[in-house]
């Protein structure tokens, strides 16, 4: 495998290409939380959302069969997983976006809302890791 930063850059370029395809093809902003949340609500454009999610789930599943599944090293602490999942689900819907919609798609068009969102979720994430890892020692 290549060094981490090269794989990060390559993977990032492919993620950006995905967003470009979604924008120029369907005229939509590629935001994972909006696409999943819309599917949960059952609002309009259901076919578009479900096919996107099919690709998002299926393509890495196939790639993992070919090149081997990467280690996700997800915590086994169920309380942490449930709390984190609820926070991510509630937070991204209240903020109307996550790393892909506000981060990648928002910053690339210099959207003030996207930039502010990104600053706050990175600050909150950094503070959370610092407190829960170095102060409390639970993650």
């Amino acid at each position: 495998m290549q060094p981490d930063w090269i794989m990060g850059l390559l993977g990032g370029l492919i993620i950006g290409l995905a967003g470009a395809v979604y924008l120029l093809g369907n005229g939509r902003i590629m935001g994972a939380s909006g696409i999943i949340g819309g599917a949960v609500d059952g609002s309009d454009r259901t076919a578009e959302r479900l096919t996107f999610l099919a690709g998002l789930f299926g393509a890495p599943a196939l790639l993992a069969l070919v090149v081997g599944a990467p280690d996700t090293r997800v915590t086994s602490d169920i309380a942490v997983l449930v709390a984190a999942g609820l926070l991510v689900g509630i937070g991204t819907r209240i903020a109307n976006g996550c790393t892909s919609g506000h981060g990648v798609c928002g910053i690339s068009r210099l959207s003030l809302r996207g930039i502010v969102a990104t600053v706050f979720y990175i600050l909150a994430g950094g503070l959370t890791v610092t407190v829960f890892r170095h102060v409390l020692g639970v993650i």
């Binding site: 926070l87 903020a95 502010v116 979720y121």
Partner: peptide, 24 residues
């Protein structure tokens, strides 16, 4: 809402290291 939501999201992201795209 942008600020409140992003702070909540960031806390969950930090706790588990997952956000919506990678989770799926």
């Amino acid at each position: 809402m942008i600020v409140i939501g992003s702070v909540l999201f960031g806390m969950g992201w930090g706790l588990a290291g997952l956000c919506p795209g990678p989770a799926v």
